[in-house]
């Protein structure tokens, strides 16, 4: 039952990553690409971590959760920075 849960979550995460990658490659401009990347990145990674949690002991679980948290933090900030850089380069849109 738990295995099924893991498979479903990891698979869901993988599909989201795939979608994000397609978005990154196909979206027309930098801001929408950024959007595709971050939304999917956070949720996809989150699902994968969630799926893996039942497979390991609590210590590894905490490590996995911390990994996700760190990616959230740096992802959010880096996205903000890139967005800012795009704004300053192309002021009015």
């Amino acid at each position: 039952m738990l295995d099924l849960f893991s498979v479903a979550c990891v698979l869901g995460g993988a599909i989201l990553f795939m979608a994000g990658t397609i978005g990154l490659l196909r979206f027309p401009d930098q801001l929408t690409r950024l959007h595709a990347l971050t939304k999917v990145d956070n949720l996809g990674l989150g699902l994968i971590v969630l799926g893996l949690l039942p497979q390991f002991g609590w210590l590894t679980g905490v490590k996995l959760f911390c990994t996700w948290l760190l990616v959230q933090l740096s992802g959010a900030i880096v996205t903000q920075l890139i967005g800012g850089a795009i704004r300053t380069r192309e002021p009015r849109r």
């Binding site: 760190l70 933090l73 740096s74 900030i77 903000q80 920075l81 800012g84 300053t88």
Partner: peptide, 17 residues
Amino acid sequence: AQKHSVLVLLARTLPPI
């Protein structure tokens, strides 16, 4: 050069970790 408050935020929160 610019006042990027988010970068400063990152530079204050990440290093301890």
